[in-house]
C-alpha cells in the first residue's frame, strides 16, 4: 500500500514544500521521479489518510495565540467516544485524544487542546465548552503551557544524508532494514 518512494517523499516534504513556482518539480528532482508522480502520490497518501492534512502549518504562538491549555478529563469509558466526537466539533478545540488512565495518580482519559490569545479567553471558552457539551460531571484539570522548550513538525522519516538519526545504541534491526532503502523513522 505504501512503498519506499512514498517514505522518501514524506521525508522530502516534511520539512516543508519549497516556496517556488514549481515546488513539486523541485521535490521530484530530488527523488528522481516525475512532478506528476509526486503530486499523485501526495494526493493518494492524503486520500488514504496517512497525510491527515496537506497545507500551511501555522505557529500559533507567533500569531499571538499565546495561551494554550491542555484540558484533561475523566469520562466514563462507555461515554468517552461520544464526548470526544462532540467536543471535537466545537470551534475552540484543536485536538482531542483518548489516552489511558494512569490509576489514581492521573485518572484522566480524554485530552483536548484550546488555543487563545489570552488565558481569560481560553478559560471562558472552556466554561462554554463544559456547559454546551454537558461536561460538568467529569473531573478535569486545565494545564496551561508555560515555556516551550521545543516545537517542530513531527519527523517521521529522514534522509540519512541529512542525518542526526537516533543514537546508535537505539538502532534496532527494524531501522537497519529501513536504512537499506535510504530512509529511517525517528
Amino acid at each position: 500500500m505504501i512503498d519506499a518512494i512514498d517514505y522518501q517523499l514524506i521525508a522530502a516534504v516534511q520539512a516543508g514544500l519549497p516556496i517556488a513556482a514549481r515546488p513539486y518539480a523541485v521535490i521530484a528532482e530530488q527523488l528522481a521521479i516525475t512532478e506528476q508522480d509526486v503530486i499523485e502520490r501526495l494526493a493518494r497518501l492524503k486520500t488514504q489518510g496517512l497525510i491527515k492534512r496537506w497545507g500551511v502549518v501555522v505557529k500559533h504562538r507567533q500569531l499571538g495565540y499565546r495561551a494554550n491549555a491542555m484540558i484533561v478529563m475523566n469520562v466514563p469509558d462507555e461515554r468517552v467516544a461520544r464526548v470526544g466526537a462532540l467536543i471535537s466539533q466545537q470551534a475552540c478545540v484543536n485536538l482531542c485524544y483518548q489516552r489511558p488512565r494512569q490509576g489514581e495518580v492521573w485518572p484522566y482519559n480524554l485530552y483536548c487542546m484550546i488555543h487563545g490569545k489570552s488565558r481569560e479567553v481560553v478559560l471562558e471558552q472552556w466554561a462554554e465548552l463544559r456547559h454546551d457539551c454537558n461536561l460538568s460531571d467529569y473531573p478535569f484539570e486545565v494545564l496551561f503551557s508555560r515555556r516551550c522548550f521545543k516545537q517542530r513538525g513531527a519527523l517521521y522519516a529522514r534522509q540519512i544524508a541529512k542525518g542526526d538519526g537516533p543514537t546508535p545504541s537505539l538502532i534496532g534491526e527494524e531501522i537497519k532494514n529501513k536504512l537499506s532503502f535510504g530512509v529511517h523513522f525517528a
Binding site: Y7, I10, V13, Q14, A15, G16, L17, I19, L42, L45, G49, L50, I51, K52, R53, W54, G55, V56, V57, V58, K59, Q62, L63, Y97, Q151, R152, G153, A154, Y156, A157, F185
Partner: peptide, 17 residues
C-alpha cells in the same frame, strides 16, 4: 517571520511509527 512552520503534511498519529 516564523508565522508558519511549513507548508507540508501533518501525518496521522501512529500511521508511521
Amino acid at each position: 517571520q516564523q508565522m508558519i512552520s511549513r507548508i507540508g503534511p501533518v501525518i496521522a498519529p501512529n500511521s508511521i511509527g
